[in-house]
Simulated assay, not measured.
Amino acid sequence: MAERARVVVITGASGGVGRATAREFAARGDRVALLARGEKGLAGAAEDVRQAGGTPLEISVDVADADAVDRAAERAEEELGPIDVWVNDAFTGVFAPVSRIAPEEFRRVTEVTYLGCVYGTKAALSRMLPRDRGTIVQVGSALAYRGIPLQSAYCAAKHAIQGFHESLRCELMHDGSGVGTTMVHLPAVNTPQFEWVLSRLPKHAQPVPPIYQPEVAARAIVRAADRPRPREYWVGGSAVQTILGNRLVPGLLDRILARSGYSSQQTDKPHLPDQTANLWHPADRSGGRDFGAHGSFDESGRAFSVQQWASRRTGRLTAAAIAATAAAGTLAWRALHRRHG
């Protein structure tokens, strides 16, 4: 348990990683402001927080609206108290080749995923900086370092968040601020986004295996909020090998993803043309359902990350784990390259 109940704001809290993170904070007795567009998902998240031992506050907001995000922050402070932690997790995406994504769809993904992060950060900073305390956690992805086919809008937005985070971190260090910021880069996670993402693929979209359960991500985010000094956290061996692999052999990754990137992001099931899409409207609006934290890949989802466990141990063990993971990943890439070469 934390020494005192903190006030935590989470964007994208109605489902997936945001929903699991809300439960994780609530289990410590924290007061959690839940920001999202939907209705049923927000109500479900609030009940999760209550059941876990926390105090919820539901706020319906589109993070692409800067004024609305600031009003949400004001309401959170009025009803829960001064904000201690702000987690930017809201995002949206489109699964399609660049040639099949409309300009307005690129704009919308950017406004929600990147600018939503900027607006949330600014709302938090305007309240944290005068108090000289608080923590901002940006939820990133291995795809903030490595773009993959069929997710260009999402990858570009996560790349932008990475650059924004680095700039902000330098500014806070320059000012000697007591406000901390860090970024948590996630692997593929079993969330409902694959049930509601706008997709123009012939088959049902899926995360690139290996797939982790959202609780793995949630634990990492809560840990980052407790210890924001590291500039970023990498979660899962696949995220580590993706980030390091892109630094070492980016050209090889280009060729591998050109061959396998399409098939690895689709199941064997056909895409349903009438599938709910949340790009413009929440998937759980009137007539919809509460999607919860988990997607449809529970059978293959990993509930534990060896890499994450190792990163909590000594520096030597952490280095060994990362090196071993990177080496294994490199061997796998080479084997795949030979198989398709």
Rank of each mutant, 00 (worst) to 15 (best):
A27E: 08
P82S: 12
E104Y: 04
T135H: 01
L35M: 11
R50T: 12
Q162N: 14
P149D: 09
A293Q: 09
F95Y: 12
V216A: 15
D65G: 06
L34P: 05
Y212W: 07
G261M: 00
F291S: 04
R6H: 01
A220W: 08
A123R: 04
R37C: 14
G140Q: 05
V109K: 06
V9Y: 01
G315P: 02
A36Y: 05
A68R: 11
E166A: 13
G147K: 00
A283S: 14
S199R: 15
E74P: 03
Q275I: 00
Y233I: 08
G93I: 05
V112K: 02
R200E: 13
G287F: 09
A123L: 10
F291R: 02
P228W: 03
L125T: 08
D67E: 15
A218G: 14
F25L: 01
V139K: 03
P97N: 14
W333E: 12
H281W: 03
A153K: 06
I211G: 06
L57S: 06
L198K: 15
L252Y: 05
S238W: 11
A332V: 09
T325S: 12
A283F: 09
A160D: 13
A123I: 03
T121N: 06
A102M: 01
Y114S: 08
V32L: 01
Q266G: 02
S263Y: 07
G261Y: 01
D254T: 08
P282G: 06
A326E: 12
I211V: 15
L80T: 14
W280Y: 12
G116D: 05
K269I: 01
R313K: 07
M183C: 13
L57R: 04
S238Y: 13
R219H: 14
V118I: 10
E77Q: 15
E47I: 02
F291M: 06
E79R: 13
I161Q: 08
I256H: 13
A123T: 08
A324V: 10
G287H: 03
Q275G: 01
K203A: 12
R37E: 06
R289G: 04
Y145A: 07
P230R: 13
A142L: 11
D84A: 14
Y154S: 15
S126Y: 06
E3M: 03
V139P: 08
G18F: 01
G287L: 02
G295W: 03
D89P: 00
G301E: 00
G116S: 06
K158L: 13
R71D: 10
V32P: 04
V235D: 02
E74I: 08
A224N: 07
R131M: 03
Q151H: 13
D62R: 09
F304S: 02
L198Q: 14
L336K: 11
W309H: 11
A13C: 04
V189C: 13
A239N: 01
H165Y: 06
Q308N: 08
A27K: 00
K158P: 11
R247Q: 15
D65L: 09
K122E: 14
Q213I: 02
A144L: 05
A64Q: 09
D175S: 12
I10Y: 06
P130M: 09
V139G: 08
Q151D: 04
C170G: 14
L331I: 10
C117F: 10
A324G: 15
V61Y: 12
R31M: 03
L42S: 10
T182R: 11
Q138E: 09
Q307D: 05
V61P: 11
S263V: 13
A20T: 00
A76K: 04
F194G: 04
